[in-house]
Nucleic acid binder design. Structure first.
Lengths: 247, 247
DNA sequence: CACGATTATATGTCTAGACATATATGTCAA
DNA sequence: TTGACATATATGTCTAGACATATAATCGTG
């Protein structure tokens, strides 16, 4: 057995490493309300004694809980259970092709319009840039089992992503292309609801006045705008799922 | 000066601790594409030499990057830059009262209906529980500057939250009450779009057929169902914002 | 009592070294 | 060629001790 396999006060779970056991033990007390919001968690030196381990081990467990916003640590004062101020949920917005194929449905992509032009005032406003530059404007449709799934209206800033000029968007969706060619991004999503106008209804094959879920996504890479995209989904079929886990 | 204030290869940022500098340095290389997805990051012993520090310091930086899903660590093989599979954004869904007052608008709450009853089949299905128990069913309306902001249709499981039986929902919104009385929860949100029917239109003071954003939230605590709630917002005024930050 | 200076203390970071463990890779036999 | 086995190695975890730093609490002074 290991040098570190001391006995300690943890219930079961012998497979977990010590710091994980400590983390779960504290997490459990918070989740069950045994240690309510505002409660001061034992000091590190007290936890060292309780679990018979070094301070670094206790510290690793507490650091992870602090990173997850479950606790708050204050120098000289101690460590306290945080009050959940808002429910922050993780929304996983997949690449549409991946999303559809993950559902076991066949994916189809259709390019409706694609043009390259110097940015006009509206384009600059939409991308949030001041300088004039070249952009690519794209309209396309994603289908699942040949039923329209979403329509996409996108602007790509060619100043940020000059490689996009050489991309072929007749076969590859711009979202997939960007995901694979722009190494990492920051993004902001805005979600709202609307009803289908005549053009939207025709493209999505739904009735005029039918509900639609709207996702506007702005993507940046190191303070430079990459793309602005608006996605429209039939609202009665599409769902966005966001999960929140305390800790 | 500190024992640990060695010279190292980091550009600027002398205020940051060493492990944070290392983390940011690696993060920067990933974000700029210098180290593309799949690239093998130098081994810990190489990073120790590069930054002239101990292995634990390097390990702390890499552990945090791994926790953020920016890198993947494999024993014996090394550490690799991960390919972003999906854009996961953090959606902050605030308490409605807090959300409205944060906008500097006056908040008003109106209880439309509140009843306590034994759960029927529909209630059990909605809460996802099998056993029969008591529930509270609530319908209410939230207003901002006396304009309807959202309507709420909620079910609370009294088996999980017996204290709710004594709560007074005529003045306090059930969401606020739960946030302050149920210590910590997990939740799943489903977002969709619909159009206002006659009843909804009347309650939200919008036209029949106007778009509405729908949030269904299902909350539980340690595997026990707490509440199921459906919120309806006028789709042309309400926006949900979700931000994603790479790292 | 009010307020600035001092002190005590809990967390924050770091080290050098140790053992644990999963697994990529090479070796050898069937 | 292939599969079983051994080995090397990178990460995973842990220790005991040190110095750093923010700040709550105390003390002293006007």
């Amino acid at each position: 057995m290991s040098l570190h396999a001391h006995n300690n006060e943890l219930p079961a779970a012998d497979k977990l490493t010590l710091y994980r056991q400590i983390r779960h033990d504290i997490e459990r007390r918070i989740l069950t309300g045994e240690w309510p919001p505002g409660h001061r968690i034992p000091f590190e030196h007290e936890l060292m004694a309780r679990y018979r381990c070094s301070r670094m081990t206790v510290n690793k467990a507490l650091s992870e809980l602090a990173q997850a916003d479950l606790i708050e640590r204050r120098r000289r004062a101690g460590t306290f259970v945080r009050r959940p101020q808002h429910l922050s949920a993780v929304l996983k917005i997949a690449d549409i092709r991946a999303e559809i194929t993950a559902l076991g449905r066949s994916y189809a992509y259709q390019l409706i319009h694609c043009s390259r032009r110097a940015a006009n005032a509206a384009d600059r406003a939409r991308l949030g840039v001041r300088r004039t530059g070249k952009v690519i404007a794209i309209a396309c449709r994603h289908s699942a089992d040949d039923v329209p799934f979403a329509i996409e209206d996108r602007l790509i800033d060619l100043d940020t992503v000059p490689e996009a000029a050489a991309a072929d968007f007749t076969t590859e969706p711009p979202g997939s292309w960007l995901l694979h060619h722009v190494p990492w991004t920051e993004a902001e999503h805005t979600i709202s609801a609307t009803v289908a106008d005549k053009g939207t209804a025709a493209e999505l094959d739904i009735a005029v006045g039918a509900p639609c879920l709207v996702i506007d996504r702005y993507t940046w890479r190191s303070a430079r705008t990459v793309t602005a995209v608006r996605l429209l989904y039939p609202g009665d079929t599409h769902r966005l799922v966001a999960r929140f886990k305390g800790g």
